[in-house]
Write a protein that binds this DNA or RNA. Structure first.
Lengths: 165, 165
DNA sequence: GTAACTGCAAATCTTTTGCAGGCAG
DNA sequence: CTGCCTGCAAAAGATTTGCAGTTAC
């Protein structure tokens, strides 16, 4: 699959928000307070994840982290991502049959845009009329969260498709 | 993982609706008219899929089909499921990191209930206030479909959890 | 110092693919 | 007949696990 994240073309990586370093150190401090042992590998994973405008797969996180920390192993990336998820700092997002992606925006409720072609996932704010959880749905099912998934084509894949048509 | 579908306990498999055989033969006829070659394996896959109240994984379809047709291979099940999906007779549903499931109800728009514990997926009718596709969402993304995912615990997993607590 | 963490490699699970033979139309 | 289907087995991609060595606290 063509990887939009390793693309080096005209659209610049947006530079991190002014608060980026602050956000990262807040996260790391919060985790340290919860008894998390801070290592270079964990810092790298947290930083890579927070710096991306779209949600990365474990493999993408590994590749990017390895640029700074060449010995980091994929297993460690997985371990770290799972712990971050368990602690509520990131959300695991699997909305198609492909590799799971990790969403660093775990605090504010939001929905997702999923590109059918390249698999990229991007956050989108909840709309006013979004459905809400109900205590009991059909057949004794207890709903605890509701998410809306918008599927379609990202701009880049639309352009690529038009070009090849 | 504990498989709620091979469970043989108190809750009877609901018997197929009165129209079940009719539905199956309608599907098969529709496919034959589109030039689909009808084989025992394909019939078995279509029947197994249509007979289940919840959506099965490829492996579950294979296990059930093998009861009637012991030599059927998993690769053939995959092939058949993909073709049914390509022809619009079933929908591939992958809403968590686990194996993809196949939804025979492709004609009527609906949403999904997903059990966080056992991974079971069940259809649920769309609510009145469901969000609708928009031509353009943020950043040039073109939305073509919207699905709502309700996550929680199915009745059986709720009971199991309470029992072990 | 020690429990927690890491890297490596092997195992697991799901899905795909290549190819020789089989069968529906 | 002939081209589409099938089974088998191997490959591929994603994730998990076991274990010996390392390191943050």
């Amino acid at each position: 699959m063509w990887d939009p994240l390793s693309w080096g073309g005209r659209v610049r990586q947006p530079s991190p928000p002014a608060t980026w370093e602050t956000q990262i150190s807040e996260i790391l401090e919060r985790l340290r307070n919860r008894g998390w042992r801070l290592t270079a590998q964990r810092r790298a994973v947290a930083e890579v994840l927070s710096a991306s405008p779209v949600h990365l797969t474990a493999d993408q996180v590994h590749q990017r982290a390895a640029k700074r920390l060449p010995e980091i192993s994929l297993a460690t990336v997985y371990n770290t991502l799972h712990e971050l998820a368990r602690m509520g700092e990131v959300r695991e997002v699997a909305l198609d049959g492909r590799a799971c992606r990790y969403d660093p925006n775990a605090l504010v409720a939001h929905d997702h845009l999923v590109c059918r072609s390249c698999g990229t996932i991007r956050d989108i704010p909840k709309r006013d009329a979004s459905p809400e959880p109900t205590k009991e749905e059909s057949d004794g099912f207890e709903v605890s969260s509701v998410e809306v998934v918008y599927r379609g084509l990202c701009r880049r894949c639309r352009l690529r498709q038009r070009r090849s048509a």
